[in-house]
Amino acid sequence: MLILGRRIGESILIGDNVEVRVVDASPTRVKLGIVAPRDLQILRSEMRLAAEQNRASTVVIAEPAAVARLVDHLRTYTTDPRR
């Protein structure tokens, strides 16, 4: 991974069409401004994980037996005296 130090107001260029500027920074948060072509998708990386998880979560719906199994599981799980 390439690691670059930048100050607030400074930016980096990626290829010919993308500029990423550090707009603001605090010890826990960095605010970035991005200039890029409209057709380029820009995503917070955790959004892709969340999207994949959500897609996987909808699969079960097609199968009533799977829902019933999940209910059984959940009831055992939430009433488990060890918890």
Binding site: A50, Q53, N54, S57, V60, L70, L74
Partner: peptide, 17 residues
């Protein structure tokens, strides 16, 4: 929490999101 059930392993819950 959104639940995910798969045939080959125990169901999971999304506690992060």
């Amino acid at each position: 929490a959104i639940l995910t059930a798969r045939a080959d392993r125990p169901p999971t819950a999304n506690l992060m999101a």
